[in-house]
Design a protein around this nucleic acid. Sequence first.
DNA 1: GCCATATTGACAGGAACCTGTCGAATTGGC
DNA 2: GCCAATTCGACAGGTTCCTGTCAATATGGC
Lengths: 158, 158
Amino acid sequence: MTKLTAAGELLTELVLEVFRVNGLALEAGDALTESLGLSSARWQVLGVVDHEPAPVANVARVMGLARQSVQQTADALERDGFIEYRENPHHRRAKLIALTPRGREALRKVEARQATWANQLAAGMDAKALRSAAEGLRQVRQRLEEDTASDSRAGGAR
Amino acid sequence: MTKLTAAGELLTELVLEVFRVNGLALEAGDALTESLGLSSARWQVLGVVDHEPAPVANVARVMGLARQSVQQTADALERDGFIEYRENPHHRRAKLIALTPRGREALRKVEARQATWANQLAAGMDAKALRSAAEGLRQVRQRLEEDTASDSRAGGAR
DNA sequence: GCCATATTGACAGGAACCTGTCGAATTGGC
DNA sequence: GCCAATTCGACAGGTTCCTGTCAATATGGC
């Protein structure tokens, strides 16, 4: 029977903590966006195309999601008038996601709310703890990214 | 326009990092469990009832999920023979989720794989960084839990 | 013991992610 | 310039989460 080493135990605990914080943060994001007709997922898409319009596939790569997941979210955003699809000079088929005035306004409001929320929450916290937590997570993420990359090269964990 | 303070900026970055690691960890969990007919969600349910059988609603509270999410997962686990519903001496309606021999065997195999995975991944990492990351996340989680608790008392962010 | 209240599983339906497959458009080797 | 390989959006279908509603069951005040 394979047993966890001390370091393995630490990593396992860290991942469980990540799951809990992820759930709570998503919940907070949905609460922040709900009354504007958005959600955490929609907000993220708007944020990516704020700087400049981009096709669905590009947004998906930036977000680390499947192309089709972003496609669905973007189609919903278009139906609700937050974005529009523009002609792409470099690609006839891959239209660009661009914010409408309504989308831009909603994004600005969400960002203001998020700033208030983050400032309040962070006010009572130790800056050093926040910094080192982010640093540790970056380390974990790099290892995970190498890991999944080598998996896909080798054909998975079967 | 509300702007992010330095601490707010740190918290925001940390949360974004949590999202990325969460996605990668879920992916790794699914890869670990897939060939056994499980998934990250199913694994978690089996893990909770391993120590002792419990009704769906209890499992949901422990996992921080909605009752009905666990209900669906548990029903699927029963269909596939990993768990069975047992009579509950304390409650006629709330039957107990209990591992079948097949479920117990699958859980043991997943845990062995997870140990190998975590040990390998943690081997190259700084133990102090892992510890302080977990500690920082615990701090964030506590603040988030207070926050959502006060939200529900006050009636949300509308 | 009785009855309002809370909790439970069943059922219905929606959101956000996934995968696989398809034809159209683009790109790169030659 | 041609043609194979890649990338793109459309479409179909599945999983895991959510919410809301209902009837059955417990629970607690009195």
